[in-house]
Amino acid sequence: MEHVTQLLLILVILANLFVLGSHPLGACIRAVALQGIALGLLPLFLHAEERSVHLVFLSIGMIGLKGFLLPGLLFRAIRDAALRKEQEPLIGFNTALVLGAGLIGLGFAIAAKLPLPPGTAASIVVPVALATVMMGLLVIVTRGKILSQALGYIMLENGIFTFGLILVKGLPGLIETGVLLDIFAGVFIMGTVIEHINREFGSISAYKLSNLKE
């Protein structure tokens, strides 16, 4: 089980690096979808000795939402707004990749200092979660397109989800459902709003949304 957990976590980080370093928006969305599926499988292997209905429910919800529903929404937003499939990065892709590796290192450094519950210190769950959160933030602040920012938002939430996994036993299912629903609502609104922004401003670059008007 240790093998599978580690492979899934490595896959999560590789998906992050892929989003940081690749140009076409469609490929980035697919990478984040893959990340969501990997994270959906993670609770089943992380707590292999005590698989419960709760865990299975969480897994199915995560895979369905992050692996299929949200990517579907983002692809629909691209199609509806007839967007050109390219991103407007504030920093170059090479710089973003190097920063990403730096953030992975930072994640491991911070995790080594955190007071963690016993039994989780040896695993790479916590450092991967921290690195994913930071890489999601990096995507949000460095990509100009609203759609890329939505993608960064999903990555950020994936990191938080990973972090929550170490405490999954003590977490009521209702809270998780609530969080998943929040994400769904957030991306759903972004997906529909993007079309309106595009129609109004003729672009979905966040740089043009600098002043409010009635």
């Binding site: 490595i10 980080i13 590789l14 690096l17 370093g21 892709f93 090479n94 990749l97 190097v98 990403g100 590796a101 992975i104 290192g105 491991f108 790479i124």
Partner: peptide
Amino acid sequence: IPRLLIAACMIAIFAMIIGLR
């Protein structure tokens, strides 16, 4: 091409971070 090679290098650094832990 540099981006491909940088990505390979960053994956190697990731491996190093896990390996040196």
